[in-house]
Structure formats: structure tokens, C-alpha cells
Write a protein that binds this DNA or RNA. Structure first.
Length: 304
DNA sequence: GTCCAGGATACTG
DNA sequence: CAGTATCATGGA
């Protein structure tokens, strides 16, 4: 249906490996090297199949092949899909700076080599990015996925194709009208339920908008605007800036996964202190988000 | 049983 | 102010 050129230093397989890290994921399916994902574009629900074909010659692999298995996208919708995928795989980033930085750093160098072509796998939708981060606060990822699954299957939209179900994450419009108890039933804490509904309401009124955040000149201002939201602390703000707002310097320094990854990579007995991390990260300046993402990736090595 | 998870906030001294 | 309790549950 459509092809998208990809930049140098892009590995679809590496990105797919990251997307496949949880078998509890409800928002996409990975099968035979292709990504299947439902997406709502201009009011219509589509089912996309995204592949990176193994071609006759190597040059052909620098394209993503997009098929639409359900729905009939117009030309405008195709444009939106391209924008979406560019954000999903961070396709507009020139990674040479990161690899140059990694080359100079003992922690990043082996990771940059091992996962070459991995790009930050984004969450283009602001509501999803914010609330997924909130859901994940302080609990294990697997429990977070359980909650996301319940949340999505309860309040999201569904598309069935070839006997398989594909889910859309709940919209802020839907969630804005929920009560705390609706989410408590899904084992949200009272606080988390309040936070998630609060974010939905702020987006429903237009007070909170992705474009508005992206218009801010200073990333510090963006960070401040995010932490002003109830339930959003420094970690969540940086997570969202990294996964949704494409800020390559965003750095969720308090992240437990980051700590564990560093502990393993450095062969430490204990997790490094925040001061140690800050010191290490001086060399990552400008590429903290990528450093973090590659470190996260290193946690799934035992997982093919 | 205990402790820690992709933290953030409300409460206490 | 800094320090502490609290949250809900699963897995190690």
C-alpha cells in the first residue's frame, strides 16, 4: 500500500525486539517479523501491518512496507500514518551524534554496537504516554501491563480481523467521564485513578495539549509544565519527554530500570547512587534519552 | 514472611 | 523544610 524510506542506522528488527518485550502487550501484535497495530486516524480505525522486507539487495531494506488490512485510508490519512510511524520509530533523528558519543564512553560503547540501529520506540499519543507512565509508577512492569490490559479492554475500542482482536488505547474523552471507582475495580490505587482521570480531564478541556508542550522553547519549561500536573513527578515528566515529545536529552535519572541496567553493565554489587549516575551521564550530554533507552534494552537480552 | 517494583504525594515533626 | 507513611499487587 505504501512505503516509507528509513534513515541510516535504523534496525527494524531491533525496534521490534523492544516492542516484543512483554507477552502481555495488548496494543500490538508481532508475527513473523511484522508489526500489526490498530490505529485511529481521522476518526477511522485502521489495522496496519508494518514490515521491513528482506529484499533482493540491501538497498531495498531501507524502507518500511505498510499494508492496511482493515479500513480504507485516504491520502490525508496516509500522511498521518507516516507522521505516526516517524514518531513511533524516531525516524527523523540523525543518530550519528549518539554513536559518536557512545564511542567515547565505556558503558555505552558495547551497547551501541550490540543494538546498532535501535531507535527510541515512542508513544506518539500524549494521553497514552502520560497515563502509561502513571500506571507504571512504583510497580513491576508485569503488573503495569496487567493493569494496562484491563484498562484497555474495559475502556478502549476493539477491532477484530481474522479472528484476532486488536485494541486501541482508551481515549482521554472516554476516561474524562469515568469515576475513580471505575478504575479502582481494575486495581488502580485511588491516587492513580485520580491522576489518570485528572490527565484525561485536562486534555478534554484543551488545557493540556501535545502541541502546546512542543511549542515550548526550553525543555526545562516543558518539564515544568508536565510536573505541574497532579501525579506527574520528575520521572514521569522525563519519561514522557523521552517517549512522546522526542526530547533526546530527557533523562529519567530516578528510573529503577536504568539503575539495574547500570549495575549489571558495570558489574556493581549495588545499584549506583544518583550522584554516580549524574557523573557518568556528563559524557552523554545531549543524548541522555538514547543512553537510557539502550540501557533499558540491555535488560531484555535474555529475551529473544 | 519479606522486599522490591519504570514514583508521587500527603502527612508529620 | 527533610523525613516518612501510604498505596495494591505480583514475583523473587
Amino acid at each position: 500500500m505504501m512505503e516509507i524510506a528509513v534513515p541510516d542506522c535504523f534496525s527494524f528488527d531491533e525496534c521490534l525486539r523492544f516492542l516484543g518485550r512483554s507477552d502481555q502487550e495488548v496494543l500490538h501484535r508481532i508475527e513473523n517479523g511484522s508489526l500489526y497495530k490498530a490505529l485511529k486516524v481521522r476518526g477511522e480505525v485502521l489495522l496496519l501491518k508494518i514490515s521491513c522486507g528482506q529484499p533482493e539487495n540491501r538497498r531495498m531494506s531501507h524502507q518500511l512496507q505498510i499494508e492496511c488490512l482493515a479500513g480504507t485510508p485516504t491520502a490525508d490519512m496516509l500522511t498521518d500514518i507516516k507522521v505516526y510511524l516517524a514518531q513511533l520509530f524516531d525516524l527523523n533523528r540523525d543518530l550519528r551524534g549518539f554513536y559518536k558519543t557512545a564511542e567515547q564512553d565505556d558503558v555505552l560503547r558495547p551497547l551501541a554496537m550490540r543494538y546498532r540501529g535501535l531507535r527510541i520506540v515512542g508513544i506518539p499519543d500524549l494521553f497514552e504516554a502520560l497515563t502509561w507512565a502513571i500506571i507504571g509508577q512504583q510497580i513491576t512492569l508485569s503488573f503495569a501491563y496487567t493493569m494496562k490490559k484491563r484498562f484497555t479492554e474495559q475502556f478502549g475500542e476493539k477491532l477484530t480481523f481474522a479472528d484476532k482482536r486488536y485494541w486501541l488505547y482508551p481515549t482521554f474523552q472516554t476516561v474524562a467521564s469515568l469515576q475513580v471507582d471505575d478504575l479502582r475495580e481494575l486495581q488502580f490505587t485511588t491516587r492513580k485513578a485520580e491522576y489518570v482521570i485528572g490527565v484525561a480531564k485536562a486534555m478534554a478541556t484543551g488545557e493540556l495539549k501535545k502541541e502546546k508542550l512542543l511549542d515550548m522553547r526550553e525543555s526545562q519549561q516543558m518539564h515544568q509544565a508536565l510536573t505541574a500536573i497532579r501525579g506527574v513527578g520528575a520521572w514521569t515528566a522525563d519519561y514522557v519527554m523521552m517517549k512522546c515529545l522526542q526530547q533526546k536529552s530527557a533523562f529519567p535519572i530516578a528510573d529503577v530500570g536504568l539503575h539495574n541496567a547500570l549495575k549489571i553493565q558495570l558489574g556493581l554489587k549495588e545499584k549506583p547512587s544518583q550522584a554516580q549516575i549524574r557523573q557518568m551521564a556528563v559524557k552523554w550530554e545531549g543524548w541522555e534519552a538514547y543512553a537510557t533507552f539502550y540501557l533499558w534494552r540491555s535488560l531484555y537480552d535474555d529475551f529473544t
